[in-house]
Amino acid sequence: MNSVWTIARKELSDSLRNRWLLAIAIVFAVLAAGIAWFGAAASGQVGYASTPATIASLASLGIFLIPLIALLLAYDAIVGEDEGGTLLLLMTYPLSRGQLLFGKFLGHGLTLAFATILGFGVAGIAIAVLVEDVGITDLALAMLRFIGSTILLGWSFIALAYVVSVRASEKPVAAGLALAIWFFFVLVFDLLLLGSLVASEGKLNPELLPWLLMLNPTDIYRLLNILAFGEGRQLSGVLSLGSDLPIGQGGLWLALLLWCVLPLTAAWALFRNRRI
């Protein structure tokens, strides 16, 4: 456990040193504040619209940004050490490959978690203070849910980045594959799902369809933040399938958690076979 923390501590102090943590927090804060104030601009007015609308907009933007940041943060975790020549040295220390990987995950995970809490937390407090007659309890609950799910979404993409990082032999390859992962889950997946729905002409089992959304962590994330307000009308596109899911909030949280655990386990298994 000690060596896991030593690795995590180095990652964390690295992201403080190169100001990654601060930069991510600022991006999140600006994003949240901007959406809160200008979210209603489409309807011809400037100002705070409503908590559900703000969270829904934040989640829609979050699915682009958060996976990208997580992948950027973590894609070179292992392959970077290998190219830098330090992986060989680390492995001659009393440190197993699992400990190294989990230490990295802890460090990157905490970096992302702190940045999220800091960025969106500040924005949430600003909304609570500056906007008149906003339901504080509703806002706090929605913000907590949003921050929690954002952290989990980030962690799942950190874990996915590790799967790439333990396999790739060079950093540019890992970066390319990480971008491909982003492209697939954020842009392509929903189109594929929609396309296959249309092409199948209703021959697919309607019971099965909503479950397909569970194959994409960004869809789970959006469902979590939108369904919680009990407003199915906010769901558009393939997400409308989600209102038929029989698993509820707890199930969605569990699904998102599995998206952290499974890729991380896969990365660990692959790392054990990497030749050093």
Partner: peptide, 20 residues
Amino acid sequence: DPQVTRHIGYLPENVMFYPQ
């Protein structure tokens, strides 16, 4: 074995460290 590697010192050829 971690109990063994604890007592080994190793200098690899062309040793590299974290530049920052």
